[in-house]
Each structure stands twice: as structure tokens, then as C-alpha cells.
């Protein structure tokens, strides 16, 4: 189940939701946070996370800050104003999707 195709489409929404909750985060932090929340069930691969972040950044959903931490530069991502609105929409969309899937997957008990 870990890296199922089903999760792939939701990756950006998951990232946006995390940023909404935590303010700014850096790439490695995001992978760890996802692992922690889902108790290792869902692993965001490095090869998928950065492209997703860069795309969101180019779309104006995320903006970046850079700081010097422990001898190195760290790039933080956070939601832009547009990104915050977008997150609300995407989450609503995802919830709809989940609801629809539930009705599809669980046989309805008809009277």
C-alpha cells in the first residue's frame, strides 16, 4: 500500500495541508512529518517531493526563504496568500473525492 498510485495525485494536497498547519518547512522535514503522521504507511519519496515543491513554487502557491543553518543553506517553503486559498479548495475537493469513493466502495444498505 505504501507508495500506491492512489496517493500520488494527492501529494501536492498533502504538502499544502502540512504547510498550512506548520507554517514554513524544509524538504527533509516534510518527508519526515509525513512518515510520522502516517506511521510509515505512506512514504513520500525524495524523487517525488522536490518536483512537487518546485511545481507549486512556480505556480505561485509556495514561496521560499533561505537561512544559514549548521554550515549550510536551508530552503524553507511556505504558502503564499494564493496558496492558502488554494489549500482550502483542494482539501474540500479531496474530501468530496473521499466521500464519493466511500459510497462507491462500500455497498449501500438499501431498505
Amino acid at each position: 500500500m505504501k507508495n500506491s498510485q492512489l496517493y500520488k495525485g494527492s501529494l501536492t494536497t498533502i504538502v499544502m495541508k502540512l504547510l498550512e498547519e506548520n507554517g514554513r518547512m524544509y524538504g527533509y522535514e516534510i518527508t519526515q512529518k509525513v512518515k510520522e503522521i502516517t506511521q510509515g504507511e505512506l512514504k513520500i519519496t525524495e524523487g517525488a517531493l522536490y518536483p512537487a515543491l518546485h511545481k507549486l513554487e512556480a505556480d505561485g502557491v509556495l514561496e521560499v526563504e533561505v537561512e544559514n543553518v549548521d554550515n549550510r543553506l536551508r530552503k524553507y517553503y511556505k504558502l503564499t496568500e494564493k496558496g492558502t486559498t488554494e489549500t482550502v479548495n483542494r482539501l474540500a475537493e479531496l474530501e468530496d473525492f473521499i466521500r464519493n469513493m466511500q459510497t462507491l466502495v462500500q455497498p449501500k444498505i438499501t431498505n
Binding site: 524523487g47 522536490y50 518546485h54
Partner: peptide
């Protein structure tokens, strides 16, 4: 190894695409 067989290649390619769009 966690980046997979193509290493950083996909990250580089996608970054290029994103910045070209920008």
C-alpha cells in the same frame, strides 16, 4: 539510494520544467 535508479535526474528535469514555466 532512496532517490531511485535515476538518482537526481528526475528532480533536475522537473526543476527545469518548473522554472521554464515561470
Amino acid at each position: 539510494k532512496k532517490f531511485g535508479v535515476f538518482g537526481f535526474m528526475e528532480v533536475v528535469e522537473k526543476r527545469q520544467a518548473a522554472l521554464q514555466k515561470k
